[in-house]
Design a protein around this nucleic acid. Structure first.
Length: 744
DNA sequence: GCAAGGTC
């Protein structure tokens, strides 16, 4: 029997259909689909079916020395038990195996993994390899007509990467987690891809923090006929110059020159994973969500494989018949319009052997899909259309005016031909149509406006921008970048979108940049890529590359352990700052996230035991203190991150507690508010609130005379309210029923 | 409980 191994189920199915020339018989082996015809059996893997890890005796983080991990034995274990078992069964019957996994380095390694399992049960099995750049009839038939040899060196280069990633990742992850005390579910991780990515985010935030805004001014004039013109110096850096310009203006603007031109926007290139994530990100999807939805569309046959680096449609794709297909669905008119002309698709810079760009493969109706799926499907369809259409042509008009001694300009733009923008409305194209004017014509100046502005710091990264940057720097792959970003969120290194780092991230990046800089730079990946090439070309062995890497890591640990105390202090300080929620209304100390004896977390006052102010927090999930502040309680909003779930914006813990109590319907347990004081009705409350007194704590901690002055309420009344407020707050503490307070 | 890389 001749066994054929494909990278995944779908590939196995399609390859078998092409080779058989008919529908093959589907049989399950160990629960896995196999496709049979003649004397051949095709089986699809699920990517890697084995994984590398340390033996179990290294599992205890506290008992194992970090250095021992550097040279510890590494074992390979099946991660896809059913597939491995199917391979063992099939391997016994087969006399020949053909590896038909993806045509790239990981594909070669995945093939060799399967081959090793087959050889264990059948040492005499004959192996060969086919390489194809698309699963099309001609490509598959060509590849199978002349099988080649398995490239064990290429696979070995992939193994080197696996080992280096595991050793560096495990050793440094444990060091940082143990040293910072962030253990269990909340451990802190380090890795060849994630750490340089995190460093990008932290470095950007530092740039923003240290940015010195420079003031500048813009001068506009409004003319009759509804024309707004701007001074020819777009940024004016001194107030003196602004005054000088304003003084030399007259009340007539004379048209000095009119120049017309043409601008052409090129249509976008076909979607690879990076540009797809980037486009999805700009319409509100996170990178991970965009990929999850794209995968579901792919599995259901609506779009092609979403993990690709290719931005050039291969000749095997019949673009016209795809348009024909789409013309039977909701995009009928657009498809028909495009079919009128000749079809020349745009091309991107990267053409690869793995998969085609992402394009629609079947027609969907809005009712067939969930709302998010539809949005992504529509994006893919519209992008496909855009790549087949022409340039967007603009007519541009630039008019300059003399107003007194100064030159002002107005820029107009009008679309002559929408081109690709007709199909792809995601990026803005605003026209600014100017009325017809003649050179020398005078227009009345109706008013001027001086806008005072500041230069802006660089923007924080959105997820799309970050994925693009990772791609440019060679960090991660098309299949992993979105995952790496999710990981940074899950570790509470980052939050929000655009992305902000936490102080923990600052501390970890700072520690690594100081003492283990290699792991914070994209160069580590670049060097590794180079070494892998050399392994594949047999210029160096896998063993040599790994040994060199191990020695480097040993040197890193010499450095880390020599500065252990200093690193511990700075990591713990970063973690402490991230736990600060706000200032205590009762005593002014920091309110921080604490953990009680029984593990329950709560917001507690760092002035404990003198001050016993507490607020409860939910049981599960990672707690992140965000930058958003509650105006009423002067506390930062809190976000809860649960694995595999959407983050929960809990908001201000004080407001959250009040709402929770209100929902429970128990008046006595609610956090007391101003109108719990007898004598404060809606009117007094409003007056107090508009004077900035919004809580009982604010009432007791503010000088009665100043409250009286700003509200017009008598001092006597205020003092008596303050007394009631104190007794209410006091009672609340003694009640001890506030969840979390008993365990401090 | 550690990484990154496949795939679902």
């Amino acid at each position: 029997m001749h066994l054929i191994i494909a990278e995944k189920h779908d590939a196995a199915k399609r390859i078998s259909e092409i080779l058989a020339g008919k529908k093959p018989t589907v049989t399950k082996v160990s629960g896995i689909d196999t496709f049979r015809f003649d004397d051949r059996v095709v089986i699809g893997l699920s990517g890697h079916i084995v994984g590398l890890d340390y033996p179990e005796c290294y599992n205890n983080w506290h008992k194992v020395d970090y250095r021992d991990l550097i040279r510890a034995e590494i074992v390979s274990r099946p991660t896809q038990e059913r597939i491995v078992s199917a391979l063992r069964k099939l391997g016994r019957e087969a006399d020949r195996v053909t590896i038909a996994t993806d045509y790239d380095r990981e594909g070669e390694l995945i093939g060799v993994e399967a081959l090793c399992i087959l050889q264990e049960v059948n040492p005499s099995i004959k192996a060969d390899r086919v390489r194809f750049s698309a699963i099309t009839k001609s490509e598959i038939l060509r590849a199978f007509a002349q099988p080649e040899e398995v490239d064990f060196n290429l696979a070995a280069s992939g193994e080197a990467r696996q080992i280096i990633d595991l050793v560096w990742g495990a050793a440094l992850t444990r060091f940082i987690s143990i040293t910072s005390g962030r253990l269990g579910k909340e451990f802190l991780s380090v890795g060849r891809v994630q750490s340089p990515t995190l460093a990008l985010i932290v470095d950007r935030e530092k740039e923003i923090e240290s940015f010195q805004p420079k003031p500048y001014w813009e001068i506009y004039a409004d003319l009759e006929k509804g024309i707004r013109v701007r001074h020819s110096k777009s940024r004016i850096w001194t107030r003196d110059e602004v005054d000088r310009i304003l003084n030399s203006l007259s009340d007539v603007a004379r048209v000095r020159s009119i120049s017309k031109g043409e601008r052409r926007d090129r249509p976008p290139t076909p979607f690879d994973t990076t540009s797809f994530i980037s486009a999805a990100s700009s319409i509100g999807f996170t990178a991970a969500n965009a990929m999850r939805i794209a995968e579901s569309l792919y599995t259901n046959g609506y779009i092609s494989y979403p993990r690709t680096d290719n931005t050039v449609y291969p000749p095997s794709i019949d673009l016209r018949s795809l348009l024909e297909m789409l013309s039977s669905g909701p995009f009928r008119e657009d498809a028909l319009e495009l079919m009128k002309g000749s079809i020349t698709p745009t091309k991107g810079k990267r053409s690869t052997t793995d998969h085609p760009p992402i394009y629609p493969t079947s027609v969907a109706d809005k009712d067939d899909l969930k709302e998010d799926q539809w949005k992504i499907y529509e994006l893919v369809v519209r992008r496909f259309f855009a790549t087949l259409s022409g340039e967007c042509v603009w007519e541009t008009t630039s008019i300059s005016f003399d107003i007194g001694d100064e030159v002002f300009r107005a820029n107009g733009s009008r679309i002559l031909d929408l081109g690709w923008r007709r199909y792809y409305p995601y990026s803005r194209a605003e026209e600014n149509v100017l009325p017809p004017l003649r050179e020398g014509e005078g227009l009345k100046v109706l008013s001027h406006e001086v806008l005072s502005k500041e230069t802006q710091p660089p923007a924080r990264f959105g997820q799309g921008r970050l994925v693009k940057l990772m791609d440019e720097l060679g960090l991660g792959t098309k299949s992993t970048r979105h995952d790496i970003i999710s990981k940074l969120y899950a570790r509470a290194y980052i939050h929000g979108n655009p992305i902000r780092p936490t102080k923990t991230a600052y501390a970890v990046v700072d520690t690594l940049q100081r003492h283990a800089p290699a792991i914070t730079k994209p160069e580590m990946t670049r060097t590794l890529e180079n070494d892998m090439l050399k392994i594949a070309e047999r210029k160096i062995t896998k063993g040599e590359v790994i040994e060199e890497s191990r020695q480097m890591l040993e040197a890193v640990f010499d450095e880390l352990l020599a500065h252990r105390k200093e690193i511990e202090d700075s990591l713990r300080e970063g973690l402490r700052v991230d736990r600060i929620v706000g200032k205590c209304r009762l005593c002014g100390s920091d309110l921080i996230i604490r953990r009680g004896r029984r593990g329950a977390r709560f917001v507690g006052c760092s002035g404990y035991p003198e001050c016993r102010f507490t607020l409860p927090l939910p049981r599960g999930g990672m707690i992140v203190v965000t930058e958003r502040r509650c105006e009423t309680h002067d506390m930062n909003h809190i976000r809860i991150i649960n694995r595999g779930k959407r983050p929960w914006d809990l908001g201000c813990p004080y407001c959250n507690f009040n709402n929770w109590q209100a929902k429970k319907g128990s008046k006595t347990q609610r956090m007391p508010e101003l109108d719990d004081i007898s004598g404060i009705g809606p009117k007094s409350r409003e007056r107090l609130e508009s004077a900035g007194i919004k809580t009982l704590e604010a009432l007791v901690s503010t000088d009665p005379a100043s409250i009286s002055e700003s509200t017009g309420i008598s001092i006597k009344k205020i003092i008596s309210w303050q007394e009631s407020a104190r007794s209410i707050i006091h009672k609340g503490e003694q009640g001890g029923e506030v969840p979390g307070s008993s365990t401090c």
